[in-house]
Design a protein around this nucleic acid. Sequence first.
DNA 1: GTTGCCTATGCAACTCGTTGCATAGCAGGA
DNA 2: TCCTGCTATGCAACGAGTTGCATAGGCAAC
Lengths: 184, 184
Amino acid sequence: MALEHAILVSLLEQPGSGYELARRFDRSIGRFWTATHQQIYRVLRRMEADGWIAAEEVAQDGRPDKKVYSAAGPGRVALSGWLREPVEPETVRHELAVKIRAAAFDDPGALVSEVERHRESHAALLARYLAGEQRDFPAGSALDARQELQHVVLRGGIEYERMTLAWLDDVLATLHRLTASGTD
Amino acid sequence: MALEHAILVSLLEQPGSGYELARRFDRSIGRFWTATHQQIYRVLRRMEADGWIAAEEVAQDGRPDKKVYSAAGPGRVALSGWLREPVEPETVRHELAVKIRAAAFDDPGALVSEVERHRESHAALLARYLAGEQRDFPAGSALDARQELQHVVLRGGIEYERMTLAWLDDVLATLHRLTASGTD
DNA sequence: GTTGCCTATGCAACTCGTTGCATAGCAGGA
DNA sequence: TCCTGCTATGCAACGAGTTGCATAGGCAAC
C-alpha cells in the first residue's frame, strides 16, 4: 500500500524512468522498501493515471526510448497526507528466527553454516553503509534538511547491522554450545 | 512461503487448533512471523491434505468443537529439509524510514508525534520482552536445547528493541534540530 | 557471427495476504 | 433483555507481490 509513496519520495529526490527506479530499489531505497520492476511499472501507470506523477518521453540514441517520471502536484499532496497518517503495524517476516526455533526439533549444528553466511552478508552490508556514510556525510560537513534526514536513516541501517552482527555471534555461540554438549 | 514452517514449529512446540495458533501468532510466534486466522486456517487445511499434520476432533462443553492439529512425520521431514535450505532474502518494508526521507519534502515537524508513538510502543515491547526473559529464563537456571534456542531468539528481540529505541531518539533529536532551525 | 548481457517496457498467470462477512453457542454486564 | 465479546471455523472477493516469458535494439567478448 505504500509502494506509491516510496516511489514518490524517490522521484522527488530525483526524476527517473521505471527502469531507473527499479535499479534504485535494488540499491538505496530498496534497503527499506523492496520492489520488482513489475510492481514498479504497474504502480507507475496507476500513479500517472491518477495524476500523481507526470511522464515525459525521452528519446535516446543507442538505447530504447524511456519515459521519465517526476512527481506532480497531486502526488505531493498525497504524500503530505500520508505523512500525517499513523503507520500501520509492519508485518514481520523473520525467517532465521523461525529456523532457530525449528532447530530444537532437528540438529542445531545444521544451522551453523547458514548463520555464518548471514553473518558475512550483514558484515558486508555494514561495510558498505560505513563507506557510504564517509563518502556522503563526512564529519564536520554542513548538511541541509534532506541530507540530515537521509543520514539519520543511514545511521539506523548502520546500527541495525551492528546489532544483527552481535546477535548472530550470540546465535553461533549458542549453537556451538548445544552441538558440543549434544555429541558428548 | 514459510508460514507452513512457522506453523509446524509452533505445533511441534505444542499441538493446538487453528484458533489457538492464531492467538499464538498474535503473541509469541507473531514477533517474527505474522499471520491472520484466515491464512492459518487455509494453510492448515493444505498441510493436513499433504499429510504434514494430523487433526483430531475434540468436543468441548460450553464451547464449539475444535480440531487439534499436531505435526506428523512428513511434516518433520519437510521441516528438516527446509532447515537445510538457504533462507531467501527477506523483503524489507520499513515504512517509517520512507516517511523520514519523505519529510524532507514536507514539514519534518509533522513526524514528531508519529515517531514518539513508535518510541512508546517499542519501549512497551522491550519491557514485555524483559519481563518474559526474567520469567522464563531466570539467571543461573539450567536450560535444555529448546529453551536455549528460544532464549537466543528472545535476546535478539530485546537487542532489536534497544537498538530501535536509541535510533528513534536519534531521529527525534534530528527532527527537533531541523524544525528549530527551520522556524528561525 | 553468435552468444550473452544491458537498457527499457510490458503481458499473463499465479500465489500470497487482507478484508469483510457469516455462523453459532455461551457468558457477562447494562 | 439486549448488547457486547469470546471461542471456533469458514467463504468470497479483492489487492499485493512473484515468476516466467516476450520484445527489441545495441554492445562487447569469444
